[in-house]
Measured scan of single mutants.
Amino acid sequence: CHSECLGNCSQPDDPTKCVACRNFYLDGRCVETCPPPYYHFQDWRCVNFSFCQDLHHKCKNSRRQGCHQYVIHNNKCIPECPSGYTMNSSNLLCTPCLGPCPKVCHLLEGEKTIDSVTSAQELRGCTVINGSLIINIRGGNNLAAELEANLGLIEEISGYLKIRRSYALVSLSFFRKLRLIRGETLEIGNYSFYALDNQNLRQLWDWSKHNLTITQGKLFFHYNPKLCLSEIHKMEEVSGTKGRQERNDIALKTNGDQASCENELLKFSYIRTSFDKILLRWEPYWPPDFRDLLGFMLFYKEAPYQNVTEFDGQDACGSNSWTVVDIDPPLRSNDPKSQNHPGWLMRGLKPWTQYAIFVKTLVTFSDERRTYGAKSDIIYVQTDATNPSVPLDPISVSNSSSQIILKWKPPSDPNGNITHYLVFWERQAEDSELFELDYCLKGLKLPSRTWSPPFESEDSQKHNQSEYEDSAGECCSCPKTDSQILKELEESSFRKTFEDYLHNVVFVPRKT
């Protein structure tokens, strides 16, 4: 048989008469490798580009789960590009990614509803959504962080984005990388972005840091009482949809009607710091009717980097990364020049730590249904340095008659930039024990000054392991946590139920 035959053949030295091919099969003959313009397919066939392209389009058009959109890589027609490569849609070739590779997620039936953290986790790592997304989240724990972890990498949506009755959302900033909504599939009414009845939605994105392009379709905003109209108009300008909307697409009466839409800028007039305090004062603000001013709200939190936005980490279910302080308005003076500047002394802060701070007014709604208010920009203030805590785990070892090696770990709280350490030492008198000992005694162990690591005695271990207080009263049991108490109650309830079950099964009433 021919060298490319495997198993047997019907005619000697003829690659077209093989029972099976050793390498690849091409047009009725066995070959060692697939010549151009053919590609290896499933490690035994040679196919042309049209064959591989037909497989790709067949799966793409069917949208069946589990099928493969075949691509070409290293002269092979394979189910998908290997790690580190992405497909070129024009020629199906796998090309190296520039940075992290995109991950295209194809949605069944063309859309997916995100109504819980669990459903959001199914899209973790996706960068391109081939379909439409509907966000409908009523509640949950730590929602802002969970949504950002699972949806934060999405850069492109081919269909539309719909935010509907998501009472738990305060902001859409968890879509931190969303840059493009194509609108290839539109919501009824030709809408590519749809926001309806979101009672706590206050911000779409921080438009000073976020760009969003909507290729096709219109915007729809109705019944978002805490979303200011200025935020919607800003989205029109940034996304390129200005002029597409009709009169009733953006409701003037049901958007922002319960919001404090600040239209003035508060400026800080005085800032002073110490290692654990920050004193702030800002310019006074009074609405047209000074009785509408209820006070100020001061927001602050630790910020290692200057990239904080107002609604980071917030949701309507209680999660809030900001510390909020309510401040009463100052006494009002008739003389504008003698107006008191409101302020606040922030206490209990960490030394040498940068804080993000902003302040906003708290006002009631005027009778004319106009909203007044003022808010400052987010500023960054760093507390002063102070003395560091003591170095940890000092170790001293003498390696000769004239040297001592000293080692330690950095302090747990540096409280500033540590530039150097101060080492103090003092000579001590020799131990009298060394002169009084009889060095001729056998088995004498000389006193040693070398360091030995501390260890816990058996008594201390027994005390720590004991669940009861000892007789001397030195140790006591740790208080039980809520989960331990709940577990004990469940076990007790189970024992009672099981005992009742045994009584009912074992003891049967005697027939009379």
Rank of each mutant, 00 (worst) to 15 (best):
C105E: 03
L108V: 13
T113C: 15
S116P: 02
T118F: 06
S119W: 02
E122W: 13
R124V: 10
G125D: 03
G131W: 01
L133C: 01
I134W: 04
R138V: 01
E148R: 15
E148V: 05
E148K: 10
E148S: 14
L151H: 04
E155I: 08
E156P: 01
E156T: 07
G159V: 03
R164M: 12
S166A: 04
S166E: 05
V170P: 10
S171Q: 11
K177Q: 11
G183A: 12
L186Y: 12
E187D: 15
I188R: 07
G189K: 03
Y194K: 15
D197L: 11
Q199F: 04
N200K: 14
L204C: 06
D206T: 07
D206H: 06
G217L: 01
G217K: 14
L219R: 06
F221Y: 11
K234S: 08
V238L: 15
S239L: 12
S239E: 02
T241A: 14
R247H: 15
R247N: 08
N248K: 12
I250L: 13
I250S: 04
K253L: 14
N255Q: 02
D257W: 03
N263F: 02
N263H: 06
L265Q: 13
S274I: 02
K277R: 11
R281Y: 09
P284M: 13
W286P: 00
P287W: 03
P288W: 07
P288N: 12
F290R: 01
L294T: 05
F296T: 00
F299H: 12
F299I: 12
K301R: 13
Q306N: 15
N307A: 15
F311Q: 09
D312I: 14
D312N: 13
G313Y: 09
D315K: 15
A316F: 14
S319K: 09
N320C: 10
W322V: 08
T323Q: 15
D328E: 14
L331G: 14
L331R: 12
S333F: 04
S333Q: 13
D335C: 14
P336L: 08
P336Y: 00
K337P: 13
N340T: 15
H341L: 11
W344I: 00
R347W: 08
W352Y: 05
Y355K: 04
I357V: 15
T361S: 05
D367V: 10
E368T: 10
R370W: 06
T371G: 01
T371A: 07
D377A: 13
I378S: 03
Y380F: 11
Y380E: 03
T383E: 01
N387T: 13
S389V: 00
V390M: 15
D393W: 15
P394Y: 03
S396K: 12
S398V: 04
S400F: 06
S400A: 09
S400N: 15
S400D: 15
S401A: 15
I405A: 03
P411S: 04
